[in-house]
Write a protein that binds this DNA or RNA. Sequence first.
RNA 1: GGCCCCGUAGCUCAGGGGAUAGAGCGACCGCCUCCUAAGCGGUAGGUCACAGGUUCGAAUCCUGUCGGGGCCGCCA
Length: 594
Amino acid sequence: MALACPAGTKGPIMNLFSDIRALVIDSLAAMQAEGALPAGLDMTNVAVEPPRDAAHGDMATNAAMVLAKPAGQNPRAIAEALAAKLAADPRIVTAEVAGPGFLNLRLTPAAWQGVVAAALAAGRDFGRSAMGRGVKVNVEFVSANPTGPMHVGHTRGAVFGDALAALLDFAGHEVTREYYINDAGAQVDVLARSAYERYREANGLSPEIREGLYPGDYLIPVGEALKAKYGTSLLDRHEGDWLAEVREFATAEMMAMIRADLALLGVKMDVFSSERAITASGRVEEAIATLRGMDLIYEGMLEAPKGKLPDDWEEREQTLFRSTAHGDDVDRPVKKSDGSWTYFAPDIAYHWDKVKRGYDQLIDILGADHGGYVKRLKAVVSALSAGRVPLEVKLIQMVKLYKNGEPFKMSKRAGTFVTLRDVVEQAGADVTRFVMLTRKNDAALDFDFDKVLEQSKDNPVFYVQYAHARVCSVIRKAAEAGIAADDTTLARADFARLSHEAELALARKIAEWPRLVEIAARGQEPHRIAFYLYELASELHGLWNRGNEETGLRFVQDGNIPASQAKIALARATAVVISAGLGILGVTPAEEMR
RNA sequence: GGCCCCGUAGCUCAGGGGAUAGAGCGACCGCCUCCUAAGCGGUAGGUCACAGGUUCGAAUCCUGUCGGGGCCGCCA
């Protein structure tokens, strides 16, 4: 008696691990109904996972150990009873109790062959999850100041944010990618003054790049563009006459440059929000007034920070946000001594704006140097959403550059400013993205120019792309041998022929993909995708090489079309998962390596 | 002084309550008349910084210590 529809399976996009977990939970519920287990047990910690050691089986559950104490029973006794129930399922071959109460399961080859079929049927959608269905998430990232080109640090944030957004999308969330343009602070006035000097230069005058101005060459074309637009009409005028116009012009030029940089990396934003637009519309005052209405804004004194005191510290009364009411360590000023807003004030308005746009979750991706800023941002969102919207801040740790094995200091002044464009033009977007995503966001990243530029086997991206290219090569060979190997044909292959242990091992790895997507999305950890792809590629390379010795394991079987198609289907399913995974990382799957 | 991140093999790093802790690089030994050797198999290499605590069970959670990095009103 076959199960009409095994629990947890939704159409072709299956997750065998959650299916078997559902079976375990059902079996435990049956035991409760029979009185073998007490009612009302908390099952949330019951897990079904691949065991660390493959010798233990295909899957393992900790159910008996988790439930032993609340049920007041011996874990091994629970495991024995559960094993008897599970063994009745047609997908389960053996269920053995081991160690302190683990239950090790072995599944039928048909179960694993079914995964290959499901992967081919779903294509690149295999592994898509409904986990985030109905959840609107805003991912704000990059948000580099519009005062110059993006550098390597921005690059890591851009790549991480883009991949995280893609991952959440794959896990079913409704995702918005957003860039916050800091086009209202003092830094854009500095930009305007710097551009003005380049404008003077374009008009044949010698520029005065004073201390504190931006000296970069990238402003020279901006100066020329200003000359083209304004001729000599802005020369010898007071700053007040040209500042606003030049600021707007230069900011727009910088944003065009940043958009071009992002395009180079393959990053596309859905929304650009302007700090100036928010400020000009009076929303800062509105936000502060709202907080004041909640008694979260007050006039008061801050204690001097302990330890190293700023030279010009003086205690004085100022306008403060009571962020301590929402988890911060101290209250935070929203006004400077001259009465103008601090940087924080427009950020309050901006985050309120995001809350009002109806997101269920906000994610900010910031550089690690903004670590001291996290608690106050969370406090703002907590206060202005009445605790409804969680804000997650992902801090991106430093990128440490190495060249010739030596640490490489970046300095605008010394002209050793390494831009995103430098990196991408030399290493390529694929390598840059993969390397930067093969590390979790909260660990510092060593970026070794030699290794990245070398494009050698040290680069895991090539290893993964090579696996994909090998599959493409097999399919080309099959076509030459007159074997139909299009996806439609492969989807109807005789999967029961995939009976060799080495082939089933690859199918098991493919089966982990939907589970891994959910784990990575839940933890907001795109690096897990990169590591998984590496492991999956390794399985494929291993199987490939076994084909050298055991010709029966080669994908193309001379004179045996059904066998070839089954084996090619396995290879193709692997490639489909690699392609989907690389798609999340924003890396191109290679058709061939040249 | 306070806050955040990190400390796992010689090096670079995964794993973040579960069984005998993993991978790459480097070292050593093997594998191309055979679908791309940019690949594969194997050997060697560990006090999971340290000390307490919680737990049936801790590299993983909690507290503290040490070491490295980042940050701490009037920059953004």
